[in-house]
């Protein structure tokens, strides 16, 4: 089986400061990779480089495109990359305000990606939007409400629906549960886990919350100071951490 995403030697500097350095990994179809680390460890920089929001200084991000097979997304043309990020890729921001159009109704938010790839039948677009809102547990009678009238958890679920409507194969998540209270987090995680399994999605989840990766991720990468210091199966890394920093991280989780 070909990897869906092949990351080779990604480095990113901000001037002389290190963002992330020499990151390598493969992601296979249906696999969920967690990236953990403390604030400033370079995990968000890495995610932005992978998703094409930032240009890495060195390295390749080879994505297995539907049409042409494996292609380096760093060197591909901008229209092609933007097309990917509307179709095969999805990006869930930590703050729903970054990923939603707050002045546009929930239905319009979900429909935007469909219209961006050429859907021009109002009835169909709306039908699909209502369908997806239902999947993320947003009632049909909220379809025409604006996200600014939604709670934080609903906004996050709406963002997920908006991203998944074009049937992407790879979803990038940046702290998807950050800023939500625990019961809402639990439901969102449940939902995400269900969708990932059901749709066979691959995902890269960046978080500092070990409980989130324990639930979602098959594999785990631990970052510190811009470098990957430990990788492995999630349970293995969390139950038997090898690197000193990972041990610190795991032992720092508060027990209730």
């Amino acid at each position: 089986m070909n990897p869906l995403l092949k990351v080779e030697n990604i480095s990113k500097y901000y001037g002389s400061r290190l963002g992330c350095k020499d990151v390598n990994f493969d992601l296979y179809p249906g696999e969920v990779l967690g990236i953990v680390g403390e604030s400033g460890s370079g995990k968000s920089t890495l995610l932005n480089c992978l998703a094409g929001h930032q240009e890495p200084d060195t390295g390749k991000v080879v994505f297995d495109t539907r049409a042409d097979g494996p292609k380096d997304t760093v060197t591909m043309s901008e229209p092609e990359r933007r097309m990917l990020s509307r179709t095969d890729w999805a990006f869930v921001h930590q703050n729903p305000r970054d990923g939603l159009r707050m002045g546009v109704s929930a239905g319009g938010n979900v429909g935007e990606r469909l219209m961006a790839v050429g859907a021009r039948h109002y009835g169909d677009i709306r039908g699909t939007a209502v369908d997806w809102l239902d999947k993320v547990e947003i009632a049909e009678d909220r379809t025409d409400d604006r996200p600014s009238e939604f709670s934080g958890g609903m906004q996050q679920r709406l963002q997920i629906a908006r991203n998944l409507v074009t049937g992407p194969r790879l979803i990038f998540m940046d702290e998807p549960t950050g800023g939500l209270d625990v019961s809402v987090q639990a439901r969102l995680l449940d939902l995400l886990r269900g969708l990932v399994r059901e749709l066979g999605l691959s995902a890269i989840v960046v978080t500092h919350d070990l409980a989130v990766v324990r639930l979602l991720a098959d594999r785990l990468m631990v970052m510190k100071d811009g470098r990957v210091i430990e990788t492995g199966l999630t349970d293995q890394v969390l139950d038997d951490p090898q690197h000193g920093y990972t041990q610190l991280l795991v032992s720092s989780v508060l027990q209730v």
């Binding site: 901008e78 509307r86 319009g108 025409d144």
Partner: peptide, 18 residues
């Protein structure tokens, strides 16, 4: 430049929805 005009239809969609 990239002929990404999906957003224009979002405006029309909002009209019909409202």
């Amino acid at each position: 430049a990239l002929e990404e005009y999906g957003l224009m239809h979002v405006k029309l969609y909002e009209d019909i929805a409202r």
